[in-house]
Design a protein around this nucleic acid. Structure first.
Lengths: 387, 387
DNA sequence: TCCCTTAGTAAGTTTCCGTAACTAATCTAC
DNA sequence: GTAGATTAGTTACGGAAACTTACTAAGGGA
């Protein structure tokens, strides 16, 4: 490491500690968290405050001693923009360093009915509108959440069946549409972005994240960071085989988890249209005579896929999200029973199957959060830019 | 990071680059690899040479310009000791910084027939004998490879069915038996150590490593480092479920991969004793009328487990090792067909199924290699010790 | 033989962090 | 109410590491 990088590294460490700390923290607290000395932290904080990335609060007394000056990421100094392109809507969200929502736009529309170009033009319009609400703030970047497989390096969508898209260079095209603005624009899988909101709530933990939406996806989180994989879709285990040569899946294979427990499959099992609202679907499943059976299928399929994933990854926590969260209480006993029957990890200690707190639009928030990440990773860039 | 750690970091980077570089490298080459400047690398190398960790060769001319001074890890300056405790033997290997073998001892014995204490006493004796062959060298440490599940923090064996051991504190007990020597002693799963020899041959790559021995184990390698998992047994997918409620496995569950393709299961399928030698087993499988069937079962079971692991981990390379290596050519077509039928990664590009070069005793070499690791991670410790 | 190229070194400078000692501000005990 | 304890934060200084610039060393090719 070059010595110039040491400063960046430590600035990033201080800012990161500040963000992931549960409550406002003093310089002294940051020194303890980062294992740097107080004078060093003071200098780093001074720089961050000067650049407007950190702000001080009014001194707070906590028992004996001089009161601490609480520090927190500064509100309203930067704009990070998240996009969500889902099957039936496009949303855009602008947040600042604190994660506070600054502006939001949503347009409901069946995306598969239009062309990708139309949708990207709409998305670009929403981005410009959000940006126009806080025109004075510098923009960190734009990240789009898309339900499909994406090449992480260039933000090109390889396939997004729910949108009927294939081979769309979302990142590059959005960048063009947003010209003359020259913001970094990226695209990532919606499940992998959703997990970011969960990570914020479980800093440093390791867990398997399972999100049910039209399909079934997820992510692997190891000590607070998302596993990438060589193509950038590690953790996407909707296509884990749970029944060799079983039901046909929309991916063309047979016996995938998704063929059994995706939202679409469930709707089909309940005899409802694919556009059914979740509440109606759950209600219908609850009313129908096949409810117990459907819940059983979900629980056992999911349990088997999760057990195998836990075995390979050696994790002991699972977080259920998306449409799986509201039905978590019903399926958890069956999932738990199946996982404990199959998973080696069950021998080593208790297995946690938890429900994601049901935050609205986790993918959208995760996208904005991802757009913010460069500030935490490379604060020097933003310190120089504010000069 | 504290500034004092910067030097350690860079020393480690230089030494690591030197080790993983394919051929002897000059100071200038190291500067390019580590992105440090030439004067900085010169100073770091001077320190490493002074401590005897690196040695210079005779200048070599390569085209125009001043000839480079080739550098390489120094031979014969340190002793790292690896142990392998297998079902039928105990081996001990001493290597130096270059990986060169300095001494070796092996004793054949059915470990399950004796007590763990007896075996550990034998292991300690072999360690002392190996050490006695090169008494002048400082010992880095001892790492034991054990076929079982191990708590990585304290080297306690939770269970090793092949040895008939359970809850044996191998690391701590070996340390006691080796007193008054106060070397760091650790223990790790044999599969996870075997993969280290494969990593040395594929620096920086990501792959799934599958090793067939009495059981079936493996490891996940991401960009050159082994995935740990929360209990330290990530990648041990012998107990991936390939047939729900299928054959009973020795772990007590049903349908595990291991129940279908482990060495023991194969011997049983061929109607042979569990002690059969691999050559005989393969020959018998080849001769028997059930050969095609057995190969088919192995290929399909392994293929399914591998496909699911690849889906979750998003890898596109599999390395077959252990007893799977010699039969790799036979099973690869079936494994490939099965994996490509089930794995999402197959869509993204070619899927590599490769055979581990059949090095003898990979676990033993891996153990010695692991014992050496602290020198590469914390060279400062060893520089100070040679003063 | 001269020039070009590449390896490696030397001297001086900058940057960053740590140490030690200090000031600041509050609480507590008498 | 005041002294002392306690914790937060700053100042001044020193040292260590790495960078920049400029150099020497040593060989190849026209």
């Amino acid at each position: 490491m070059q010595s110039a990088h040491l400063r960046e590294h430590n600035l990033s460490a201080v800012l990161g500690a500040l963000q992931s700390a549960p409550s406002p923290t003093s310089r002294a607290g940051l020194a303890a968290l980062t294992r740097l000395t107080k004078p060093t932290v003071s200098k780093l904080v001074e720089e961050l405050v000067g650049a407007g990335l950190v702000e001080e609060g009014a001194p707070v007394s906590a028992g004996a001693g001089r009161p601490m000056v609480p520090l927190r990421p500064a509100a309203g100094t930067l704009l990070a923009i998240g996009l969500e392109i889902a099957a039936d809507h496009v949303s855009c969200l602008g947040i600042d360093l604190t994660g506070e929502e600054l502006a939001r736009r949503t347009v409901y529309r069946r995306i598969a009915d239009g062309t990708a170009e139309d949708t990207l033009a709409l998305a670009a319009r929403l981005v410009r509108e959000v940006r126009a609400e806080v025109p004075e703030l510098p923009v960190v970047g734009v990240v789009a959440a898309v339900p499909g497989r994406i090449a992480p390096d260039d933000g090109r969508i390889l396939s997004a069946p729910g949108l009927d898209w294939a081979d769309v260079p979302v990142g590059a095209r959005l960048h063009e549409l947003l010209a003359p603005a020259d913001w970094p624009v990226g695209a990532q899988n919606d499940n992998r972005l959703s997990v970011l909101t969960e990570i914020d709530r479980r800093p440093g933990e390791s867990f398997l994240y399972v999100r049910g939406s039209t399909g079934v996806g997820g992510a692997v989180v190891l000590e607070g960071s998302v596993l990438e994989g060589v193509h950038g879709w590690a953790g996407e285990f909707g296509h884990t085989v749970v029944v060799p040569d079983g039901l046909e899946c929309r991916c063309g294979r047979r016996g995938c988890l998704e063929a059994y427990i995706s939202y679409l499959s469930l709707a089909r099992q309940a005899g409802l249209s694919e556009d059914v609202r979740l509440e109606d679907l759950v209600e219908e499943l609850a009313r129908s005579s096949s409810r117990a059976e459907a819940i059983g299928v979900i629980g056992r399929s999911l349990g088997l896929a999760v057990a195998n994933a836990l075995n390979v990854l050696d994790l002991s926590t699972v977080v259920l999200s998306g449409y799986l969260a509201p039905i978590a209480e019903e399926i958890t006993p069956i999932v738990r029973e199946t996982v404990e029957r199959h998973a080696l990890a069950a021998e080593a200690g208790p297995l946690a199957i938890e429900r994601s707190d049901h935050l609205a639009d986790p993918a959208l928030h995760g996208a904005a959060r991802a757009a913010l990440q460069p500030v935490f990773d490379h604060p020097v860039t933003w310190i120089e830019r504010t000069r």
